[in-house]
Amino acid sequence: MGRYTIRRLLQLIPVLLGTTFLINYMVWQLPGDPFAGRCGQRPCPDSYVSAMRSQFGLDQPILVQYWQFLKNMLTGNLGVDFNQVPVATQLGDAWPITIRLALLAVAIEAVIGISAGVLSGLKRGGFIDNVVTISTLFLLSLPVFVTGFLLQWLLGVQFQVITPTVSDEAPIMELIVPAFVLASLNMAFTARLTRTSIVENRRSDYVRTAIAKGLTNRRVVGVHLLRNSLIPVLTFLGTEVGSLMSGAIITEGIFNIHGIGGLLYRAITGQDYTIVVPIASLLVLVYLVSNLLVDLLYGVLDPRIRYE
């Protein structure tokens, strides 16, 4: 497994180089001059534009720019954005909030999704099963921004049980509802995946053996059935951690959370690519690493998997 891990880590290098190059290249190819609209109503003076272009190396060939980017990333020097504010401090403020939000969302997904899936899978066609099937269908067919605005209006404005927007420090309690919104789609999917997995494994021979061993029903389900049924569910949850972070853009926007999503959103609309590029690159890294961890986790969960 050690060799496998090393090989997988080495494989990350070309993928990272390729994706970050594409991000760098594409971002500066987008239409619209990022410096043209920075001087109020009037077009910016040529002297300002050329000064900015040379400060951010835009007058250099793309490969030189990319080399510069790599050097900066590896030395941890993220530079300043177009307003001369250090990028590193902005990211440093935003990341912890998004990570907190994403972890909370994963926890909600896992707890609610898995419990709902197990309960409905055990009593297929029963009342709980119908409730879960209908409510997951509901969640799956609603876009995240609808769920988000709905809960914000319902809980925040109508009933006033939460504050409609999250304060700057983003404490855990205020993040619960946004995390629920962020988790909603995956939660529904987790519930369905768990249900299918439980239904499939419930009739399996080893469950029958566990019953024949005279184990309590709780142990048959809680140990023998669950341990096998959760393998695909946990791998799904793992792969989705990366996409949760990038998926936080909409949720963070709705609840005014000052995380990565909000920062990225403002940077894209403001065409401030000095922020877009490092965030996009970091998201790629998170995605790749979480995928690798899931593949390794899979081998721990299922001893039949062998790495070579």
Binding site: S204, T209, A210, A212, G214, L301, D302
Partner: peptide, 22 residues
């Protein structure tokens, strides 16, 4: 349940699927 295993026990046909893989 107490009789299963203690009083009456069973061996199945296909041990690969009857044993828990994990």
């Amino acid at each position: 349940r107490r009789i299963r295993g203690e009083g009456i026990a069973m061996v199945f046909q296909d041990a690969l699927s009857a044993l828990n893989p994990v």
